[in-house]
Amino acid sequence: MTKVFICGRGGSGKSTITAMFAKFLASEGMRVLVIDADESNRSLYRMLGLSAPKSTLMDDLGGRVAVKKVVFDNKKSGFDEDAKIHVDDLPRTCVSRRDDYAFLAIGKICQPDEGCACPMGALEKGFLARLHAPGWWILVDCEAGIEHIGRGIWRSADIFLVVLEPSHESLEMVKFMSDLAKEVDRPMVAVVNMADDDVIEDVKASLESTGVETVAFFPRDKRIAASNLKGDAVPLLPGFVPFLRSCFEAISEKTNAIGS
Rank of each mutant, 00 (worst) to 15 (best):
P134T: 11
K204C: 08
G107N: 04
V184S: 11
K3Y: 14
V95L: 12
G145D: 12
Y101R: 11
L236T: 13
A117R: 00
Y45M: 09
A37C: 09
S209I: 06
A181F: 09
K75Y: 06
G150P: 02
I106L: 14
C118Y: 04
I17F: 11
A22S: 13
G13R: 02
V32Y: 14
C94F: 08
V32S: 09
L207T: 02
D100Y: 09
A233I: 07
W136N: 12
E143D: 14
E143A: 14
A19I: 07
S77Q: 07
L237I: 03
V203M: 00
V87E: 00
F218K: 00
L57H: 05
K254A: 14
A216N: 03
R42T: 15
G145A: 11
H86C: 12
T2K: 15
A257N: 10
V192C: 14
L164M: 14
M188Q: 12
N193R: 07
A195Y: 02
L131D: 08
E114Q: 15
S27P: 06
V174Q: 00
C118A: 13
I149T: 06
W154F: 15
A105G: 14
A26M: 08
T255K: 02
F127R: 12
K125S: 14
V95R: 06
N193A: 06
A117Y: 15
A250V: 00
L25T: 08
K108W: 11
A105C: 14
A105S: 15
F127A: 10
F240P: 01
D80L: 13
V234W: 00
I109A: 12
S167K: 07
